[in-house]
Amino acid sequence: MPQKSVAQRITAATGVDADSWIKNSPQFFTAISAQTTANTAIRFFVGLSVALGIASVLVVVVVQKSREIGILRAMGISQGQILRVFLLQGGLLGLGGALVGSAIGGGGLMLWQHFALNAEGTPMFPLIFDAELLGIALALATITGLVAAVAPAMRAARLDPVVAIGG
């Protein structure tokens, strides 16, 4: 194992008794691993709740706008166009939510950096803006919104115009 060979090389080169710190601190690594698992679970459930939130908002919109959807269908707007309108709305909700969330999160971190200082006045944690991470987050949120919108969009597209207008 590379850790062991490093320790052996240090021992061989310096005569100092060296050992792998990973091997000597198993609880620390178990804690780190548990934290990573908890992080992943939290992210998954946050994503799921966002998707369910967007889906429920869109279901309500579809019910509230069913008459307008019926009118649009009567005027020759196709099922595909109705489907695209609601998918677009889901995607925009996801993207908009992510932009607002990122702005609030970024603002909060800057405040933290401003107020949480070490004794010598330096920030407790350095902040690094990661454009790639932001891009991935925005893309994931948009995709989540799109996926969440599929069921309500299909429901809207399949509305019977006679029922929708009459209702």
Binding site: G76, I77, S78, Q79, G80
Partner: peptide, 11 residues
């Protein structure tokens, strides 16, 4: 089909 009916209706 529905697509053709929609088109005929619209036009």
């Amino acid at each position: 089909n529905d697509r053709a009916l929609t088109r005929l209706r619209g036009h």
